[in-house]
Design a protein around this nucleic acid. Structure first.
Length: 115
DNA sequence: GTCATGACAAAGA
DNA sequence: TTCTTTGCCATGA
């Protein structure tokens, strides 16, 4: 039913935000992992782009828990401060050095694995 | 309506 | 091995 729905009622972005919000505290996820979960393995680029708009999305999206496949905080420059992302992650118990997450495999969270 | 860009990742040369 | 190219979907000019 529903009155109707536009072509982009739930776009790729919505799925990205939804997954990111599900990331548990103290865990992190990668762009490629999310993209893979959405079915677009090569759409990792889109995931990062989605985060670009995440700041204005509600509820808030823990974009600081999303990093690239190297565990590097590539998106930290998009935060209010250069160390906001790292600080937020460290606060959750994640060790970061040189903008790289240490023991990434121990902190990684895979939506596919969870579901 | 078309072109260019964007917080990535994997394959090819 | 590193460097280059392609793919993904959406947004903005």
């Amino acid at each position: 039913m529903n009155t109707k729905k536009s072509s982009t009622d739930y776009s790729f972005f919505e799925n990205v935000y939804d997954v990111v919000r599900k990331i548990p505290k103290g865990k992190v996820c990668t762009y490629g992992l999310i993209a893979n979960y959405l079915g677009s393995k090569q759409g990792a680029r889109m995931v990062g782009w989605a985060m670009n708009g995440a700041h204005q999305i509600k509820p808030k999206v823990p974009a600081h828990r999303v990093v690239n496949r190297n565990g590097m905080l590539t998106g930290k420059h998009h935060f209010e401060t250069n160390n906001a992302m790292q600080k937020a992650l460290e606060k959750e118990g994640i060790i970061i050095k040189d903008d790289i997450i240490q023991n990434l495999e121990k902190h990684i969270w895979d939506p596919l694995m969870k579901l």
